[in-house]
């Protein structure tokens, strides 16, 4: 694919991914066929900052886990009152990474 298009994608979507994944994403996109560009542009990613806000406000109910698609863990978190309050606090720190992991998994699904 055109390097200009790839750089545009990286620029507008870099906040959705871990920084160490970006070079790999760039290389994969460069090797990708042009016909997939439309599909990639329409992908909706979860904003890690939004998820963090949800986690801070409603983490005890597991809403953050439901939002990023970890339904099973969300149920677990809801039933145990945020993992006895401890898991809810742990999630404040790891939920952004988890959301970014989900985003890259979504992108990889389209790339292959």
């Amino acid at each position: 694919m055109d390097s200009q298009k790839v750089d545009m994608f990286i620029m507008s979507n870099s906040k959705y991914f871990e920084s160490h994944h970006l070079p790999q994403i760039r290389e994969q996109l460069l090797a990708l066929d042009d016909s997939k560009w439309g599909l990639i542009q329409t992908l909706q990613f979860q904003d890690p900052t939004t998820i963090l806000i949800v986690s801070l406000l409603a983490g005890g109910l597991g809403i953050d886990r439901f939002m990023i698609g970890d339904t099973g863990l969300g149920v677990g978190k809801l039933l145990t009152c945020g993992g006895f309050g401890i898991w809810a606090i742990v999630d404040w720190f790891i939920i952004m990474g988890a959301a970014k992991d989900k985003n890259i998994a979504k992108l990889q699904q389209v790339l292959y």
């Binding site: 005890g60 109910l61 809801l78 039933l79 145990t80 009152c81 006895f84 309050g85 809810a88």
Partner: peptide, 18 residues
Amino acid sequence: QVCMFKATTTLPCPSCGS
């Protein structure tokens, strides 16, 4: 009580009492 939800809102959460 350790429930953060109850501590902040004084309302019990869905799993309070379990």
